[in-house]
Design a protein around this nucleic acid. Structure first.
Lengths: 100, 100
DNA sequence: ATATAATATGAACAAGTATTCATATGTTGA
DNA sequence: TCAACATATGAATACTTGTTCATATTATAT
């Protein structure tokens, strides 16, 4: 089964998701959230990117439904919205490991 | 198994691949080559993008080892370099179909 | 040889994007 | 109420990127 020349905008939408995953900062964020939810600050510490930078990228990923967040008291907890992205990233890292 | 904070540049390399897949023109090209090799001109016709535009993107995809090409006489035939990209794209389209 | 077809290349430009800086908003604890 | 903390936001800037235009290269057929 293939999809020759985009029946229904799937390619356009896929391009948007791939673009979301095409930035190292965002991949670091996702990687950092792979198993657990985390607060913004602990993502900042884990990634060594500025608070503002992380916040902007978190918003972007959330707007694309790749992440979700929940405010509990003082903190905002971010986590992966579902497992699809995990699968995609695992596939790609596998690909990379086999020698890209 | 996960990959917290990039042991060995896998995230950076993955970002590069995702970037390659993050453009609709390039996805159209890949889609168009999903099953068969094609000449540049038939890709141009299938995608309705200018010959020059296609040629630039073909070069980009080839430099990343996503496509390979072979010159036979007058024509240059492009095809997917391997099946990894297929898998990644199929995963993503599946993801998209489930309502992104 | 030459005209024509197939493909590639380089420069230029517009549009998009990541990051930083400064500041705003909201929350907790004293 | 205030100070300190956690997060978000907007503007500015530097950088990247896709496309187009013009032209170059290579192959074929006559």
């Amino acid at each position: 089964m293939h999809y020759n020349i985009d029946n229904s905008n799937h390619l356009k939408k896929s391009a948007i998701i791939f673009k979301a995953l095409s930035d190292e900062t965002r991949l670091k964020i996702i990687d950092c959230l792979f198993d657990d939810e985390k607060t913004v600050n602990s993502i900042v510490e884990a990634t060594e990117i500025s608070q503002s930078g992380i916040s902007h990228q978190l918003k972007l990923l959330k707007d694309l439904n790749i992440l979700k967040n929940e405010k509990r008291g003082k903190f905002v907890y971010y986590s992966l919205a579902d497992d699809h992205v995990k699968t995609i990233i695992e596939q790609t890292i596998l690909h990379v490991k086999e020698g890209y």
